[in-house]
């Protein structure tokens, strides 16, 4: 017989609360929560149907209409869509946007993973402090976080001023801003948290016992990392990638402010149909195409992770 461990009592009490929890969970299924689901659902669902779904369906319908100088008229034509996918200008723009979104996703992943890993290894107040420190900047407007790069990269920006005062350059550099590179920088800056956070949460969830077992069996720290921690953080990596991709593929503010003519993305092309060209039907077709791409992406990734889990950090609902 084994001698009872010192913290035996504590363990027993933990076990009993565990079973109590199980008990109350089974009772949860028995006693109905208060309220009638139909009444409770009605206000929210009505709102979402009227202001969420109906406008979307209306836009889907409009993507088959035709726009002219006399306005947008009902029609049933695929001209808009053939223009979206077969005109070189728009097809290239789409490919470029997908490429930028993909690159930004990879960049944020590479940048975020080590930080998330470090955070998951911290403890107590220190951890709370550093996690909070990551949150703070993301509680501020993304317009401001994109704008802030203008006085850094611009002609009168921090970098030019610094280099000039050192005497490295005589005249301010113009190529720092308004190109694809500055868009990458802006996008990474604006959206990193959406990668760091899910990875951090998935690392947090890893059962320490697994790591301990592997170490006890003689696994080296790095093989523990590659064979246990990395695979188990995969859901977080995936949901971070999906979120960052979703956000960047529809980006408008960052490319508009930092992109210049060569750095514009699909969001800017779509916006110009409504703000400048007044071609609502074609703009709708562009928007629907972007939504389709997003849906395809989500459908593919649903093999590994459900859409609802992407946004709930893997919590059951």
């Amino acid at each position: 017989m084994r001698v009872l461990p010192k913290n035996y009592e504590k363990k027993v009490s933990e076990n009993s609360t565990m079973s109590k929890k199980k008990l109350s969970k089974s009772r949860f299924d028995g006693v109905k929560p208060i309220g009638k689901p139909l009444f409770l659902l009605a206000p929210g669902v009505l709102w979402l149907l009227i202001f969420g779904l109906a406008p979307l369906l209306f836009m889907l319908m409009m993507s088959f209409w035709t726009s002219s100088i006399f306005g947008t008229k009902p029609d049933f034509s695929f001209d808009n869509f053939s223009r979206v996918f077969f005109t070189e200008l728009y097809r290239d723009q789409l490919i470029k946007t997908l490429r930028i979104a993909f690159m930004t996703t990879m960049l944020t992943l590479i940048i975020s993973y080590p930080v998330a890993f470090l955070l998951s290894r911290l403890q107590g107040l220190r951890k709370a402090f550093f996690v909070l420190l990551i949150f703070l900047p993301f509680w501020t407007s993304y317009v401001i976080r994109a704008f802030v790069w203008l006085p850094i990269l611009g002609r009168n920006g921090a970098i030019n001023n610094f280099l000039q005062s050192l005497g490295v350059i005589d005249a301010p550099l113009d190529w720092l801003l308004f190109n694809e590179g500055s868009v990458f920088l802006g996008l990474v800056y604006v959206y990193t948290l959406f990668m760091t956070l899910p990875i951090y949460l998935s690392l947090e969830k890893i059962d320490g016992a697994l790591v301990e077992a592997a170490t006890d069996l003689g696994a080296k720290p790095f093989s523990v990392f590659y064979r246990i921690i990395l695979p188990l953080s995969w859901p977080g990596v995936l949901s971070g990638c999906i979120m960052v991709f979703l956000l960047t593929v529809g980006a408008f503010v960052t490319p508009q402010l930092l992109g210049g003519p060569s750095g514009i993305m699909y969001g800017n092309v779509i916006a110009s149909q409504f703000l400048a060209n007044n071609n609502w039907a074609f703009g709708s077709a562009l928007s629907i195409s972007l939504i389709l791409i997003v849906m395809i992406l989500l459908a593919i990734s649903s093999r590994w992770i459900g859409v609802q889990h992407v946004f709930t950090g893997g919590k059951e609902t």
Binding site: F51, P55, L246, V249, G267, G283, I291, L298
Partner: peptide, 11 residues
């Protein structure tokens, strides 16, 4: 799920 810009345009 739908990009923000489209969320504005549909409305």
């Amino acid at each position: 799920i739908i990009p923000g810009i489209i969320g504005g345009i549909v409305l």
